[in-house]
Amino acid sequence: MEDFSLNHLKELEAEAIFVMREVAAQFENPCLLFSGGKDSIVMAYLAKKAFFPARIPFPFLHIDTGHNFVEALEFRDQLVSELGVKLVVGSVQESIDSGKAVEESGYNASRNKLQTGTLLDAIETNKFDAALGGGRRDEEKARAKERFFSHRDEFGQWDPKNQRPELWHLFNGKKHIGEHFRVFPISNWTEMDVWQYIYQENITLPSLYYTHQRECFFRDGQWLAYAPFMKLKPNEKVEVHTVRCRTIGDITCTGLTLSHADTIEEIITEIAATRVTERGSRADDKRSEAAMEDRKKEGYF
């Protein structure tokens, strides 16, 4: 006898597709935030499924820190052309050049925080009224209280203490002029769910996620990728190791895992045995206990 039940990946997929379709129906000019990381690749894949055989009805927005992995950019361009969607790029370098943003200095200088300004600018310039993001509630404790439909005021700010109640699957996307929404269709997915889904659906990822040789150096208990613009401390030296990226962000704050995993199954095995969260390998979250909450309030992803 049929038991009419979905496995958890199918149920999460159905939920994410529903949310994406709600965005297409409730907003006039939404976009999908695309970073080139695995979560946004899964988002792109879900969007394709949600509207097939029509094309994805919104552009992708990439906030380019100028410190990206070459492989991630190549992958982005390839995917965008396959899907036939428009790509909008917001450049942190341009924000710096125009004086809207000031580059951090010092050893741990990162453009991660500067992305917020560029992102808000891009949303305003392009008049996006909703931005779909691949944020998940299991990533970080401030994210655990995030809604699917997250309201932002006209300054792009998140007010965690005054969020709209969200019940059943009835999403309220109503807003005043100048306000916008961040929408997180894969809110309920865990890191493991994302990897299992990539495995189940056979989704292609950038080569960076698999084992490769890379110049890197050791800082604050983790391996970081080396790039010529990065400043090394006197005791740090560049070494070549066999590594893979657990997340892909800006080069300056993406931690590497020493790994020989070159298939999704091996990566899943590795993650199942890991005892540190995914964001534990992101230098940007280690700055303070409420680092993410503070950045989110300002309008971060």
């Binding site: 958890h8 401030a142 994210r143 965690p160």
Partner: peptide
Amino acid sequence: GLRAEREQGITIDVAYRYFATPKRK
């Protein structure tokens, strides 16, 4: 999760948590 909650030692909002056993998520 939120700073105000830690400061006041209370839970204000709905927090979503995830775990899995071999049988269910």
